[in-house]
Lab assay of single mutants.
Amino acid sequence: ALNRGDKVRIKRTESYWYGDVGTVASVEKSGILYPVIVRFDRVNYNGFSGSASGVNTNNFAENELELVQAAA
C-alpha cells in the first residue's frame, strides 16, 4: 500500500501528469474510488508555472500509480 510522502509515477494515460512523478499527500481509507491524493511540482494547464492558480494535486487509484521511492 502507498503511504504519505511516497514518490509515485503516474500511469493513467489520459492524465496531464502521465509519466510524471508526484508525492503522495494523503491516502483516504473510506473506500472511495480514487483514494490517493498526489501532489506535483508543476501545475496543470489551469494555471501558469509559478502561479497559485493552477491545480497541482489530483486523486488517483492505487493501480494507476507506480512506487518510485518509499517515504523515509
Rank of each mutant, 00 (worst) to 15 (best):
A61Q: 07
S26Q: 10
R4E: 14
S49N: 13
K7C: 12
S26P: 03
F48S: 14
N56Q: 08
V36K: 00
A72G: 14
L2I: 10
S26A: 12
L33Q: 12
D6G: 01
V55F: 09
D20A: 06
T23A: 03
F48A: 15
A1I: 13
R12F: 03
V24T: 01
N59R: 11
V55M: 08
L2C: 08
G5Y: 02
V38W: 00
I10C: 13
L65K: 01
G19M: 12
R9D: 03
N3D: 06
L2K: 01
R42D: 07
S26N: 12
N3V: 11
W17P: 00
A70F: 08
F48C: 15
V55D: 08
P35G: 08
L2F: 15
N56E: 07
V24C: 03
A52N: 12
N46L: 07
N3S: 12
R39Q: 10
R9H: 03
E64Y: 01
S30N: 10
V43H: 08
A70G: 07
S51E: 13
A25L: 15
F40I: 03
Y34I: 03
A70N: 06
N58D: 15
L67T: 02
E64P: 00
V21K: 01
V43I: 12
N44Q: 15
A72S: 13
V55W: 06
E66Y: 05
S53A: 12
V8W: 02
F40G: 00
S26T: 07
N58K: 05
N44H: 14
Y45G: 14
K7I: 11
N59A: 14
V68R: 04
N59D: 05
L65N: 04
N3P: 00
T57V: 11
S30R: 09
R4C: 11
A1S: 12
E66S: 04
L67R: 04
N56Y: 11
E66L: 05
V43T: 08
Y18T: 03
V38I: 04
G19I: 04
L67H: 03
A72K: 13
N3K: 15
G50V: 07
T57Y: 12
N44Y: 15
G50H: 06
R4L: 13
E64A: 01
E64V: 03
R12L: 06
V21S: 00
S51Y: 10
R39T: 12
V21Y: 05
